[in-house]
Design a protein around this nucleic acid. Structure first.
Lengths: 324, 324
DNA sequence: GTGAAAGCGCTAACAG
DNA sequence: CTGTTAGCGCTTTCAC
């Protein structure tokens, strides 16, 4: 079923059908009726592959994301896909597993589809990725990390600022024996940035991080629980623990519940992300809420509008729960 | 940058470049070297849009999923995308928000990209969707619900069986005053199936569901907590509550922790999905673990292998935690 | 307001 | 083993 067949059935030329279907250019009301009737009758579905090839720009938007397990990225996709669908754009994605080499390979594969934009997490990429992206001519959007130079458009917030504010908050609350439980920071560079600026802020207030426990692998509730258990086994006199994110923090929280460790009087817990679940726990989790869905929305809007290069800082919000 | 330019630079014909790049057909080692050198030098990235149009089948796989908030679907995507990436397929997706009408519209939009397969959640679709899908000639994969007639390929398990086994388990454990807390079942038809077969199983054992609380909107931890609170306010003497899924069940669990309701002696809690977080709570959650990632993997494998129509039952596993 | 024709960049016969 | 050629199904001038 092709456009030519529809044209034939409607008794008009191909270009007329094309104009009517895209509602672009001029045609009479009667022509429109006849074309639409034929389309309906034949059950014609335009071929966007052919359309994209023939026209200049595509309406594909490519997402190259580190993970689908970490709810952060589905949240971003969710925000973006709503906007893209409204504007007849199509989202395509692939998952790098936090591997910069894989990111490069997948970005290359994406570019082969000639997307209108490529959206990536963060601003740390291999040289090859950057070069390729730059050469591609398509729009580049870097998400969730404003601590670095943007290639084109960047939407998100500063992870360094998040780490800093977390430290400042814990200090303000009077905690001084602070520990850290995190996941693989080499891969998750945004968590790494939060951690290093957290430590710098402590230093600036003449406080040192007392102990840290870094778990291999991705962040998870189970790793958070295990991490805190290990940390406390080594260092008993902590008064607060900063976690790499809410998943980890929830694990720590559960450990305390299970062991009867009073929160926050005996031990304070602070996370990152502001997941909904943290507001439903017996004690609301103290954390930083990040604009994940909004990041996706804004990023998509900028692409749809073909906005000029820019960095959009959506900020974040410190949530003073009951755990710190 | 086109294939023609590469051919020119390498001093060979276009089809030769095409053959080398796809590693298909025959060519000499020297030709290969020369072509690859030119590709490298020019930074050529093949245009898959053109390639797809010219060849017969595409390597796009379209996912039309209800939600990205419910971790079930990112899990399925995760399993599928790993397999698809290995096989040089590309995943595209859109989100229906559990709206069958939107599913139809989005499926139509997907079909315009002439994907190799369309993957949908469940086997309940509008007549229009079914007709369109059938007419499209592309492979159809229905995921996570085997209780119905499959259009082509189906991968997942029986939600009715899950509801049945959940009820049987609670009865076996001696619970008789059983309640239910769920989210919008009209939209999430799979949760609806679990619930109805849960009730049927109780009936078959001369037990009636004592009370139910259905919350509008999507499942969430907060709704679970709120739902149990409301349910208990109306009906105090329950001994067990079945939740529409683990998110809801965790909310109920948190409510009990917060209110000092002893679990499971005073009230038992049973969920569905087997999320990892349920194993890290102070008491492991009793639930049914579903093969979400595997569903995506198998579905993708069947498409890549161009397998014949079939229904693949991956089953599920009842996890006897400490909450029921 | 409408149609004819020339591509978009690639693949797939088909000769050689 | 390699080059030539004819499309894939659509969009886009450009006449009419």
């Amino acid at each position: 079923m092709t456009l030519a067949e529809v044209a034939e059935a409607a008794g008009v030329g191909e270009s007329t059908v094309s104009r009517v279907l895209r509602n672009h250019g001029s045609f009479s009301g009667k022509t429109r009726e006849r074309v639409m009737a034929a389309v309906e009758r034949l059950g014609y579905v335009p071929n966007r592959i052919a359309g994209t090839l023939a026209s200049t720009g595509s309406r594909l938007v490519a997402f190259v994301i580190p993970s689908l397990s970490n709810i952060v990225f589905p949240d971003v996709l969710r925000g973006a896909s709503a906007v893209l669908e409204e504007n007849r754009y199509q989202a395509v994605f692939s998952v790098t597993d936090y591997d910069p080499g894989k990111e490069e390979a997948l970005a290359a594969a994406m570019l082969a589809w000639r997307p209108a934009a490529v959206m990536l997490a963060g601003c740390e990429h291999t040289e090859g990725t950057v070069k390729m992206l730059r050469a591609s001519g398509c729009r580049i959007v870097e998400l969730l990390d404003l601590d670095g130079d943007a290639l084109d458009i960047a939407v998100g917030f500063s992870n360094r600022a998040a780490g800093r504010e977390s430290a400042a908050f814990l200090l303000k609350q009077g905690y001084r024996r602070i520990g850290y439980v995190g996941h693989d920071l080499n891969r998750d560079t945004r968590a790494g940035k939060r951690f290093s600026s957290f430590c710098e802020t402590l230093d600036a207030h003449d406080t040192q991080l007392v102990a840290r426990e870094i778990l291999a692998g991705a962040s998870s509730v189970e790793n958070g629980r295990l991490g805190l258990e290990r940390l406390l086994a080594r260092t008993a006199d902590l008064d607060a623990v900063y976690f790499s994110n809410d998943d980890m923090a929830l694990g720590g929280y559960f450990h305390c519940l299970a062991e009867g460790i009073a929160i926050p009087s005996k031990l304070a817990i602070f996370g990152y992300n502001g997941l909904d679940i943290g507001r439903a726990t017996p004690q609301p989790l103290s954390t930083i809420r990040t604009p994940r869905v909004a990041t996706g929305q804004i990023a998509a809007q900028l692409i749809v509008a073909n906005a000029p290069p820019q960095a959009v800082d959506l900020g974040f919000e410190l949530i003073e729960g009951a755990t710190a």
